[in-house]
Design a protein around this nucleic acid. Structure first.
Lengths: 146, 146
DNA sequence: GGTCTTGTCGAGACTCAGTATCACTGCGCA
DNA sequence: TGCGCAGTGATACTGAGTCTCGACAAGACC
């Protein structure tokens, strides 16, 4: 979980130092798996586990992980900024509005769609982002039972 | 520009009072046309024109316009929240990263795509959001000349 | 191992968007 | 005319994120 974390590996691969705080934050993120988390969640985690890591360092580590593509920022329906650990390849997210669990989906032909939009609008499309919000299977069951 | 603004009409249609501050804010937004703006932009506008409208009122008016569907929130690449005046029908935005001008595009078959994702992931998709970022024709020319 | 450079660190002050509260105003309605 | 209530401005507050600065530690080099 420590040396093997793909997040740590991504930092290493990008030529960044593998310091204690960065490893600790990468581990905390890895523990969350496919669930989204906010910067505030991480800060609270760090504090509750008494890791002795400063707030600014948490923000710096997140920025770094976003920069190397190991973490991606997503916007929740509430307007909050959240993050998810993910593979660096181009993809999109399906986000559960109830438990924040995400599933990554491939490009789904959006590249072609973006080119079509570029042709029709005259815009040069540099980036596209698709976010799907809904309920994961587990939460659908939970809601049905409630 | 005052009584005829579609923003004011949308408020009226939804049964909200058409007060002075609301009209003024709707006009300010209408003036921006298809450009995105942040709440801070509006607050600065209100202040510079000495309209005597409070900050809280600006936020309340934006919330109201978002609620009636006359304004939509978009997330800029910088992570900022911005807004655009738009038609209430389901659509997506192409946003210029340089001048913030937007173009609305239709659903583009994303509904079908969302259903496909739902089938594959087991998620119940309630909402989808596509944002395309790039350069509008004018900014492409400007960049080419610079 | 010792030293040096430089990136990273924690602490804490700061900024700023957005929210909450509260007393006041003015419109609609009986 | 009086009442109720939505809407308002002012202001305090909250919380996310940034900035600064002195201290420290990782890694390169000898």
């Amino acid at each position: 979980m420590t040396a093997g974390s793909p997040l740590v590996a991504a930092l290493d691969h990008a030529g960044h130092r593998l310091t204690g705080p960065r490893r600790a934050i990468a581990d905390l993120i890895a523990e969350r798996g496919a669930s989204t988390f906010t910067a505030a969640d991480l800060v609270a985690d760090v504090r509750s586990r008494r890791l002795g890591i400063g707030r600014a360092t948490v923000f710096r580590a997140i920025d770094l992980l976003v920069a190397v593509g190991a973490v991606e920022r997503v916007d929740l329906r509430t307007g909050e900024h959240a993050y998810v650990a993910c593979v660096p390849a181009h993809h999109h997210h399906v986000i559960c509005s109830r438990c924040a669990r995400t599933v990554e989906i491939g490009d789904l032909g959006l590249g072609a769609l973006a080119r079509d939009v570029a042709r029709r609008t005259g815009y040069r499309i540099d980036e596209h982002r698709l976010e799907l919000h809904g309920l994961c299977p587990a939460c659908q069951r939970a809601v049905a039972l409630a």
